[in-house]
Design a binder for these strands. Structure first.
Length: 287
DNA sequence: CACTCAACCTGCCGGC
DNA sequence: TGCCGGCAGGTTGAGT
C-alpha cells in the first residue's frame, strides 16, 4: 500500500506513540517478517529488549527507530505492511507478524503484514547522519529539505530509460511508487515511456514539481484522517483515492480533456494515463 | 556500469 | 460453490 505520503503518516504516528518508550518484550510470530535480520529472530528480540526508542525517521519508503544503544529498528512496509499501535486487549490481527510491548504497559506496537514483502530488522546506524546501512542506497526523497533539485534534473536527463521507470528507481529519488508516478506524469502531460534523454530541462523541473505537489497534497489528506488512531493508517482509507486523476481510473474521462483514461501493462503491473494529454512517444531511431 | 525482469507472498475479484 | 487466472500502492538480485 504505502508510498511516501503513507509511510510519512506512519512515521508521524510512531513519533507520537512510540518515541521515548522502553521496549519490554518482543514476540516474533512469523520468522519471515524478520528475514532481513541476518542473525535470526532470537537475536532480533535480544537486541530490542530493554532499548529505548529515541526518534522516528524516514527516507523514501523506509522507516527506522533509532535506539539508545546506537542501533535502529528498521522497517519497510512492502506492499501490505502496517505498523499499528494497539491496546494489548485488542485481539490479534490475522496477519500479525511481530508484537512489541513497552515497559510503561501502554499500547503495543504491532507489525501486521499480509503478503510479508515487508519486514523489520535491527542494525547499527553509521556516521553523523545516522542512516542505517541498509537504507544508504536510497536517494533522498523530494520532501527532504536537502533534496538537490538540480542534481536530480541532471541525473534524470542523463538516464537512458523511460521516465516512469526512472521515477520508480529509489536510487534516483525515493518515495515514488506506481500511484504517484502516474499522477505526476498526468500532471506533467508526459507518457511514462517517454525516453528520459528527450526530456527538456523544463519537463524535468515540472515533473519534479508535480511529484512534490501530489505527495504534499496526499500527505495533508492522510494526516487529517490519522489523528483518531493508527488503525486508520492503512491502504483502506479512501481518502487519497478521491483526488487521484489517473491511477485506477481506466475508462473514466480525463479531468482535463475528457478522453477516457487508459490502462497499459507495465513491468508486471499497470500504468494509467490519458491518451489525449499523454500521447505515447513516437518510437525514435536511436542515434 | 546501466538496465530489465522474475521472484518473493497472500487475498480478492471476476469468469467459467 | 469451486477452481483458475489476473491483479494488488515494492524491492532485490540475477541476468543481459
Amino acid at each position: 500500500m504505502p508510498e511516501l505520503p503513507e509511510v510519512e503518516v506512519v512515521r508521524r504516528g510512531l513519533g507520537r506513540f512510540v518515541v521515548h518508550r522502553r521496549v519490554a518484550a518482543v514476540d516474533v510470530r512469523h520468522p519471515r517478517a524478520v528475514r532481513r535480520h541476518a542473525a535470526g529472530p532470537v537475536d532480533f528480540v535480544d537486541r530490542l529488549t530493554g532499548r529505548t526508542v529515541l526518534a522516528a525517521r524516514r527516507r523514501g519508503k523506509y522507516l527506522w527507530l533509532p535506539l539508545d544503544d546506537g542501533s535502529a529498528l528498521v522497517a519497510h512496509l512492502g506492499m501490505s505492511g502496517q505498523l499499528l499501535v494497539q491496546p494489548s486487549s485488542a485481539g490479534d490481527e490475522t496477519h500479525l507478524r511481530v508484537r512489541m510491548t513497552f515497559a510503561d504497559g501502554g499500547r503495543e506496537l504491532r507489525f501486521v503484514d499480509q503478503r510479508t514483502f515487508g519486514g523489520l530488522h535491527v542494525e547499527a546506524t553509521e556516521g553523523t547522519d545516522g542512516i542505517p546501512r541498509s537504507v544508504a542506497h536510497i536517494a533522498r526523497d523530494p520532501l527532504d529539505p536537502e533534496f538537490d533539485d538540480e542534481a536530480f534534473v541532471r541525473a534524470l536527463r542523463r538516464r537512458n530509460t523511460g521516465v516512469k521507470r526512472a521515477l520508480l528507481d529509489q536510487t534516483l529519488l525515493s518515495g515514488v511508487g506506481n500511484i504517484y508516478a502516474d499522477e505526476a506524469l498526468w500532471r506533467t502531460r508526459l507518457h511514462g515511456e517517454r525516453p528520459t534523454r528527450t526530456l527538456r530541462r523544463t519537463d524535468a523541473v515540472a515533473l519534479l514539481a508535480a511529484v512534490r505537489d501530489v505527495m504534499t497534497l496526499a500527505l495533508a489528506q492522510g494526516g487529517t484522517s490519522f489523528d483518531s488512531l493508527y488503525v486508520n493508517v492503512n491502504g483502506e482509507s479512501g481518502y487519497f483515492e478521491r483526488s487521484l486523476t489517473a491511477y485506477g481510473r481506466a475508462g473514466e474521462p480525463c479531468a482535463r480533456c475528457g478522453t477516457p483514461i487508459r490502462r497499459e501493462a507495465f513491468m508486471n503491473r499497470s500504468s494509467y494515463s490519458c491518451p489525449g494529454c499523454q500521447p505515447r512517444p513516437r518510437p525514435r531511431r536511436r542515434s
